[in-house]
Amino acid sequence: MSKRSLNNQKDRWFQYFGIFSTLIGLILLALFIFQITRDGIGRIDWDFIVSLPSRFYAKAGILPAWTGTLWIFALTAIIVIPIGVGAGIYLQEYAKKGRLSNILEINIANLAGVPSIIYGIIGLEIFVRVLQMGGSLLAGAFTLALLILPIIIVATREAFKAVPKSIKEASYGLGATKWQTIWYQILPIASANIITGVILALARAIGETAPLIVIGALAYVPFVAKSPMDEFTVLPMQIFNWVSRPQHGFLMNAAAAILVLLVFVFILNGIAVYLRNRSRKKFGL
């Protein structure tokens, strides 16, 4: 067989392999959604959305859970965006490149790989105990902010790196300071990518259970949280609680809650994709 036809064949085989790998992911996702929908769709109605949990599965609802998820989403965003974006900008634009910044960089990348339950333990010690926040929404939001902070720092840096150097030089060349260049030129171009990163990270945060269990989020919350200092539950906690019950009815409730959570996450991801496409068009990136 000639070298060329061998290469062609390799090319074709790799294509098959690629299609196969892609399909596996898609099929598994489709199966999962199919099963969850089959089990859960029948349970979703207005009552399910606006009811408090109950020990009778037919009466139980997810009001405290989804409002808790919204609370956590908003609070985490408020905490993590300024810190994460600020740190990202500092590391990318201001920090002197050297050994220290290399070590810092590797550590931040590593932090993104630390199991989430470890963050729960940190959160329990720092926020719940030392700062005496208790098992409140605020403690939960701080803990999750810690969890996704590295992702946001990295996303910010990547977004800044994607801005052409020529734009920076043009701005400096006209007498702009570093901060003016960042504020007027780089941030507007980078912001869509940063927001995309933030949204994807937040989507991850609202799916987390383990760290919230550790800091003492409750499984049974018969009220809607009214302030950041209230105790709380979130959708994943509610789901976790229901799937560990023996009655089949609660499994159906769990499936229905999963559907609601999925809708949340899909909407967030949709917004992220939309923003990214819009910025690509606008800035020709």
Partner: peptide, 8 residues
Amino acid sequence: FQKPNPFP
């Protein structure tokens, strides 16, 4: 500069 670099 060498390459035209207007701001977007």
